[in-house]
């Protein structure tokens, strides 16, 4: 029968081994030659776009890369799906954008910030998501096929 000290060894040993493996895999997957995000394409505009994304808590309603609030549309492929002009109209709308009745916060974003957020969404749209990009937005999937 298992003793208490053996149980402790199982806990400590298992934890140390899996933690080291986790660190190793983290280092491996963040290596530049394993990059799937076009990291070198992140410029000042994309960074500003991310700041806007966070400071307005867009993720509180929308999802991106499959993460977010599930209340408003997934935006990973929104530029492919809707085009830049549509996104610009939404961000700069002076009244709540309300597709099918569900209201969005009014941002009345200026041109510079709108450009930055679009640059950010474009960068997001080009990330290799291991196949999820083909599932997450069926309309964008059709475009990719065509």
């Amino acid at each position: 029968m298992l003793s208490k000290s053996q149980a402790r060894t199982f806990f400590l040993g298992g934890t140390v081994v899996t933690f080291l493996a986790f660190i190793g895999l983290t280092v491996y997957s963040l290596q530049p030659n394993n990059d799937q995000t076009n990291h070198d394409k992140i410029d000042a505009k994309v960074v500003r776009g991310k700041e806007l994304w966070e400071s307005n808590n867009c993720m509180g309603c929308h999802t991106i890369l499959g993460e977010g609030g599930y209340y408003a549309p997934e935006l990973t492929k929104v530029i492919d799906r809707r085009g830049e002009n549509y996104v610009k109209a939404v961000l700069q709308s002076p009244v709540p954008w309300a597709p099918r009745g569900r209201k969005m916060v009014v941002y009345k974003m200026n041109d510079k910030d709108t450009e930055a957020l679009i640059a950010y969404l474009k960068w997001i749209g080009n990330i290799n998501l291991n196949g999820f990009d083909q599932v997450v937005s069926p309309l964008a999937k059709d475009k990719i096929k065509n």
Partner: peptide, 16 residues
């Protein structure tokens, strides 16, 4: 610990 990987499937990191 390694189960954290289920959050990494489709966010743009390696297939491992």
């Amino acid at each position: 610990i390694l189960g954290t990987g289920h959050h990494y499937y489709y966010i743009g990191v390696n297939k491992i």
